[in-house]
Design a protein around this nucleic acid. Structure first.
Lengths: 136, 136
DNA sequence: ATAATCTCTTTAGCGACTATAGGTTCAAGA
DNA sequence: TCTTGAACCTATAGTCGCTAAAGAGATTAT
């Protein structure tokens, strides 16, 4: 049995964030000490680790609610879990693609050799989208 | 002289967003019709295009305030504009790197052949970070 | 016993919008 | 000219995933 501060240190999740997850229904309300302070067991630790890892992979709070629900039914098919993971993967790939286009564009306008705003590619390009090489 | 709806259509920026930009001080308050409706000229169009394009490249509202200020002084050196662009470029590159790690991880756990939650890599990996290949 | 550190709840703030409600104005057709 | 319906106005609240702050109470170490 340990305090919220201890849980926070062990999981690398900030204290207010833990309370926020509890409020959002991701974590069950834990037992309390005599003086009304939260007391967690290793179960709480596992669950929070799951949540943290899921967040790092970009799952939304809502997604995680679903994944946690799934993980409580080990005998069920895991189609849904794969679906969520596949969606995230597609999303991550789309974002990478988009960011790569932005990278090119920023690279291009950063290479401008001008030293006055009047001829600066950064400002010019922002002002006139038609100067862009890529679509966005 | 055209309405906010017209401006919205021409720039591809939603009406409430235009009003929000005005409130944030990115766009000067435009003239008004007899009946108090906003009336824009091509200047407003240019400015909003600049803003839109900047947002697409990931500049913050604050960055854009700075860039707009710079663009009003064409005779000045453009060091600051390049600095902002370089920062964005570094940021975009960092995000690409991070997303690529996530992509690998999601790819790996998506490849799981199990059909029951009990043996599903998605759920297992989320529950136990130590199964991860990459750091995050 | 006391001091230092934690923890509690509640409330508000962040960025960049987006949505809603309830009212006013505009432009086009009859 | 009148009417209708679309577009517009302001003000306020909600979104997401936290984060910060205030003010009070609990725990732990000395």
């Amino acid at each position: 049995m340990f305090s919220i501060g201890e849980l926070s240190r062990r999981c690398g999740v900030k204290i207010p964030t833990i309370r926020y997850y509890e409020q959002m229904g991701l974590i069950a309300a834990p037992e309390r000490s005599e003086g009304n302070q939260r007391r967690y067991s290793s179960d709480g630790l596992k669950r929070l680790s799951f949540i943290r890892h899921s967040r790092e992979l970009g799952f939304s709070i809502d997604d995680i609610r679903g994944l946690l629900e799934l993980s409580r039914h080990p005998e069920q098919p895991c189609r849904d879990a794969h679906k969520l993971a596949a969606q995230r993967l597609a999303d991550v790939r789309a974002r990478i693609a988009r960011l790569k286009r932005l990278e090119q564009e920023l690279q291009r306008i950063s290479d401008c050799g001008a030293d006055r705003i009047a001829h600066c590619a950064v400002i010019e390009t922002l002002a006139d989208h038609s100067l862009c090489d890529t679509e966005h």
